[in-house]
Design a protein around this nucleic acid. Structure first.
Lengths: 341, 341
DNA sequence: CTGAAAGCGCTAACAG
DNA sequence: CTGTTAGCGCTTTCAG
């Protein structure tokens, strides 16, 4: 059944469509009685103007496209919630897609976003976390960003100057490592993260640097990247436990791997933090509900989302924005780290 | 800067817009050479047809609106992922919003979805989980569903016959309780859930019935609804622990409350499951990573999402669909439940 | 204050 | 095979 249009309303109210449009958008004065009549008819038919027809004229859709790698990782819903909060005021809505690290899917979705003429794009994960991103993937995104305001969250694209909003993962790592050394740890391992991704290499570099600054040696065999899953945390902890010598503390690239590491260690009969200190990264909601509660570095996911939208809105208004907005991470000390025994 | 349109392409390729449209949609034969020329120009300008203009004609947007209460609860991302999987084939995309139990926000969002002429709506949580939903909220959704194919997931609206896809929570509860009785438990408590929500009352009713069927008494003081958060699980477990007599096993309305309950019990010095068995509901990804791993009832969130979209697509094609599709929950036995000591 | 008319970018008959 | 043309539902001058 055909939906009712502004013409139907106009006819029934005995006015022209322009007048209806005027009361709809409150864009010019309309006589009290006329307006009342029109509003009545609108009410009666429960008329909702067709946003697409309008967008065709205004070139605004009120939609922000969001690309996330995996909503199933609690970090992302948190970012999304922050973004939503900020977008609420301006009435923007989100077109969302999980890309699960599938670059083809990213491309496909990017293309959909362009077709739909979204007002802006927020890009997380995937190609913007790659140490070496293929040129055509780079170009595609650059192309896209030249037409639609785009902000990259916690990532970057080499040799481009796309607008970014990030948390300083380097500083966060330093915070975590220094926390451990302060507790007396001198043998510290590193678990998780895919080595071809920047999140991992940034943390690894910061890890090395901080260790050096603290006058500690980095043991290469204790550097165990893998992936970002709970299972990878388990796997690498098991590897660690099987070694002759093992560290007294471990820094994990995210909370999931930290949880996996704790799990494996606990199952192996260790007590955390008495036998080993473990610190994570992200501060997902669960971190403070896990047993033991996780010492971790907060990325301020919520704030990250808010900020991304804030910056995006500025871009949509053609305001000048900083190429890089950096949020300070925070160390959250809980139960999974303790004095070196 | 103005985006390039089909006219620009037509002019540059020395053809009419209809021909361009034809190659765009492959809707009629076009001479090889002409097609080649047009495709070249399209490539050159990186032209993407404006989806809104098209939608205006076709009355299809390729968008499905999704209303969820809270993506931060891992159950929902899982449903969403399932939905996405199913939607991928048909090229549908999701407009997503968290409503965090705010009915006004639901209304506002519903209205946006209508304006945007989404092809379908998937509604989770909020008003459709209310035992007593205000009439105007009911009507609003019914109204909406009469214009846009809509499916309610894990919920219902009294006195209406909106299409629903649910997991049989009643059966799931019975599964869990019977599992406990099989382990020898005779004193069983019930924790969590807001009592004005149907998810809670359905489970509570099934709990009572199963207990009765098993010939066991329900102790009213051990029935402790509250909310769905980890904290509420903690809170109610604490209450339970403070009692003179306490149950040997507890059924929790979801995994979050179960985790909270375990946490509180563990901190109070109990060992789970040796001192008390605890079973959850949902089987969130974390359930099998928690320590101890959670015995729970799987709602098959992923499948739920898939099915919802499948049904929705059928509706969009004007096929006849069942008013109610019910998925069977599954008992997942892990470590948090054990023989009565 | 109100109406007529043009046009946003595209598709789909209808003619050639 | 290809071009012309009439809308889709709305906003926005431009005249009254």
């Amino acid at each position: 059944m055909r939906q009712v249009t502004i013409y139907d309303i106009a006819k029934e109210a005995n006015v022209s469509v322009s007048t209806v449009s005027r009361v709809l958008n409150d864009t010019a004065p309309v006589k009290r009685s006329t307006r009342a009549k029109i509003e009545e008819v609108i009410q009666k038919h429960n008329f909702q103007p067709n946003a697409m027809a309008r967008s065709l004229l205004t070139n605004e859709t009120g939609i922000i496209g969001v690309i996330v790698p995996d909503l199933t990782n609690p970090f992302f819903p948190e970012v999304f919630a922050g973004a939503e909060e900020e977008a609420q005021q301006s009435g923007h809505t989100f077109l969302l897609s999980n890309t699960i690290g599938d670059y083809a899917k990213e491309s496909q979705y990017l293309s959909i976003l362009r077709e739909k003429r979204v007002d802006g794009i927020i890009f997380l994960g995937g190609r913007i976390n790659l140490k070496h991103c293929e040129e055509h993937l780079v170009q595609e995104l650059v192309q896209c960003a030249s037409v639609i305001p785009t902000v990259l969250v916690n990532g970057a694209l080499r040799k481009t100057d796309l607008v970014r909003v990030v948390t300083d993962e380097s500083a966060g790592t330093a915070l975590a490592v220094r926390h451990l050394t302060l507790l007396g740890h001198r043998e510290i391992g590193f678990i998780g993260g895919e080595s071809h991704m920047t999140t991992t290499s940034i943390k690894l570099r910061a890890f090395r640097k901080t260790m050096k600054d603290e006058g500690l040696d980095v043991r290469e065999e204790w550097l165990l990247p893998d992936s970002f899953s709970i299972d990878s945390g388990k796997r690498q902890m098991l590897k660690l436990l099987a070694m002759e010598e093992r560290p007294t503390a471990v820094f994990c690239v995210n909370d999931y791997t930290a949880i996996g590491a704790i799990k494996a260690a606990t199952e192996a009969g260790l007590s955390i933090p008495d036998d080993m200190s473990i610190v994570g990264f992200d501060d997902i909601p669960l971190a403070h509900h896990f047993i033991p509660e996780l010492t971790t570095v907060s990325q301020q996911a919520h704030e990250l989302g808010r900020t991304a939208v804030k910056v995006l809105k500025a871009m949509m208004n053609n305001e000048k924005v900083k190429k890089l907005t950096s949020l300070e991470p925070q160390l959250i000390i809980r139960q999974s780290s303790g004095l070196r025994s």
